[in-house]
Design a binder for these strands. Structure first.
Lengths: 238, 238
DNA sequence: GCGACACTTTGATCTCGATCAAGAAAATGC
DNA sequence: GCATTTTCTTGATCGAGATCAAAGTGTCGC
């Protein structure tokens, strides 16, 4: 993990935070936000930084302010699977758990708002609305995990890649209207492969096929354009 | 779904319920249990009964008293994936959700304790300990879903089948000591295939192979003996 | 601008698990 | 108990995606 010398002591102005009304902070009053800002620290990480290790003690929680974080699990022999992606304004960390169940890594450059373990847990105990919001996020993550199990277990490689592109398009620009979408992939081909249970080569071939079929255009390596979302959706098998 | 004429009005004696101290009821006082018993109903379902449909309105919650319940998702063209198994004393139903995200089906004959939607939600609002326990169950389900994503995405057919047998052995007899395990599979070969993202034939072949290798014996179709759990674990790839 | 390195694409071949096809064994009904 | 149906096993073949190999493209430091 990269040392974040320049980040270690940035005060946080929760009231003017860009995710102020989203995520867990939306459940907090002005007073509570003020109290919270005494504990929180803004930190930046660059793509590839490991934020927490699988089976390591859990030290703090963090809210994603900007960027994408990947949650991975690894088998002894090195086979890896991405088991979740977190976007702003998700909270990282399992409530009341002492140990990480997954490894947490910055998939892109990210801004996080760190909250010490005890501070968040205290606040959850005294604020049922906050507890309820965290429950809602956890249920949403469970739904996403189960949706992804269908993709992993029952979809073809072509459907998997299309489903992934749709997932990214949806998350990076949730308010988009009309049929057109364009975005930068926050993940490398290797990461996409780890997410989809495929190899790099298969991901690459399926992307080329989607391009050849006119479903997407690959403007730059990472920059994708989707002329008609409905056409992409039709490739997802669901 | 089978009509449960004989079940429709069985009063529940929560205080002497066999899962009294387990699951969510462990968070309730004697008074609360008494109040709860005014709302709950014991119901029995036989294997194959559909308890709730995907995308149907959620009508009530239920605690699994005995048996195994499967949660499934289905693609338009009929491909199916089991996304979760629930054992006693798990609670069925997503808190505060109006619609089922999954289809719920009895995998074996089951006894459930039904609780009306409003009654449970009211109780959760007034009892933080209960809310906390439900959060813990949800986090456990999320962990299990993520573990299973690794199995679906990165394990071989042989490892998948071994992992499934270990999962069942662990859940059906959590307090077992020593190396020996024996149990009845609550799922048909078709269900196992749907859980593992495989075909019936592949499941059958891999079971035969585990038997040939002396890792398990198939006493009857559904009854499995594992002489050494550690040997089975070694086949799981993790 | 150029060299070094990492990432991505494309091609050739192989393998694991799917599919197709019987048969065997269990469960179910009468 | 015997016929019928369903479930499970085993065999033969096929194909999607993995693996092995190489070339192409982009990125970064200097």
């Amino acid at each position: 993990m990269r040392k974040d010398i320049h980040n270690s002591n940035i005060p946080v102005r929760c009231m003017s935070c860009e995710v102020r009304h989203k995520g867990m902070c939306g459940a907090l009053s002005a007073d509570e936000l003020l109290a919270l800002s005494a504990h929180t620290r803004l930190v930046n990480h660059e793509s590839g930084d490991e934020l927490a290790g699988e089976k390591m003690p859990a030290e703090s929680y963090a809210t994603v302010i900007r960027g994408v974080v990947k949650l991975t699990k690894t088998l002894e022999d090195g086979r890896q699977q991405i088991v979740g992606l977190q976007f702003a304004p998700d909270l990282l960390g399992r409530l009341n758990a002492d140990e990480n169940a997954v490894s947490v890594e910055a998939a892109s450059d990210v801004n996080l708002c760190r909250i010490p373990k005890a501070a968040l847990e205290r606040m959850v105990k005294s604020n049922p609305a906050l507890a309820e919001r965290l429950m809602a996020q956890t249920l949403r993550e469970l739904d996403e995990a189960r949706d992804w199990m269908v993709t992993l277990g029952r979809k073809t490689a072509a459907e998997k890649v299309a489903s992934f592109l749709l997932l990214i398009a949806t998350h990076l620009d949730p308010e988009a209207v009309g049929e057109k979408r364009q975005f930068d992939l926050p993940l490398s081909r290797a990461d996409i492969a780890d997410f989809l249970g495929l190899t790099i080569e298969t991901v690459s071939r399926q992307m080329s096929k989607l391009k050849a079929d006119g479903v997407i255009s690959i403007v730059a390596n990472r920059h994708i354009e989707v002329p008609k979302v409905s056409k992409l959706k039709a490739c997802c098998g669901s």
